[in-house]
């Protein structure tokens, strides 16, 4: 079996079927949503910061889309608590692909990185560094 099906390892399918931290936070410090036009994936993240105003305490997300985008969001939601916004903004594509632990085919990279981009844009907007209504994977970093 070659690359395309290799993406759908048990871990990816598990997160797709049973997304962690799926839902909303009533006390979110900020929320942000994003869209992947090439796939139609949608994600919205709520982030609650600790009292220091920079460390992530909890996150929740909701979304709709392909297995790669939704599993990526679920796995990221587990990775984020304890990270500072500065660290979140440092995340890059490779970090996300490492987190997924599968070879993502080139045409599906946008699905994989949507979650990271949504959280990063949310953090930038919260800190006044950016002003976007909705993140799109078509916009370059």
């Amino acid at each position: 079996m070659s690359m395309g099906s290799d993406m759908y390892r048990q871990q990816i399918l598990d997160h797709y079927r049973n997304p962690r931290n799926n839902g909303e936070l009533g006390d979110a410090t900020f929320s942000h949503e994003g869209y992947n036009p090439s796939c139609g994936d949608e994600l919205e993240f709520d982030v609650k910061l600790e009292g220091d105003g920079e460390t992530i305490e909890r996150v929740a997300f909701r979304g709709d889309g392909c297995a790669i985008s939704q599993a990526s969001a679920s796995m990221l939601s587990q990775k984020l608590p304890g990270m500072t916004l500065a660290e979140v903004k440092e995340l890059d594509r490779d970090d996300v692909l490492d987190m997924l632990g599968v070879e993502v085919t080139p045409m599906r990279i946008k699905c994989a990185v949507l979650s990271e981009k949504v959280v990063q844009d949310g953090a930038k907007i919260y800190e006044g560094e950016a002003d976007v209504d909705q993140t799109s994977t078509e916009d370059d970093d």
């Binding site: 395309g4 099906s5 139609g40 889309g65 392909c66 297995a67 085919t105 045409m107 599906r108």
Partner: peptide, 28 residues
């Protein structure tokens, strides 16, 4: 099965099909 996941798996079987909104978002 999301359309893009389906297209990725079909590609492994040599089957090339389109997945997405086919440039017709309002229709979708």
């Amino acid at each position: 099965i999301h359309a893009h996941d389906l297209a990725s798996i079909l590609n492994d079987h040599g089957v090339a099909i389109r997945a997405g909104d086919h440039c017709t978002q309002p229709l979708h």
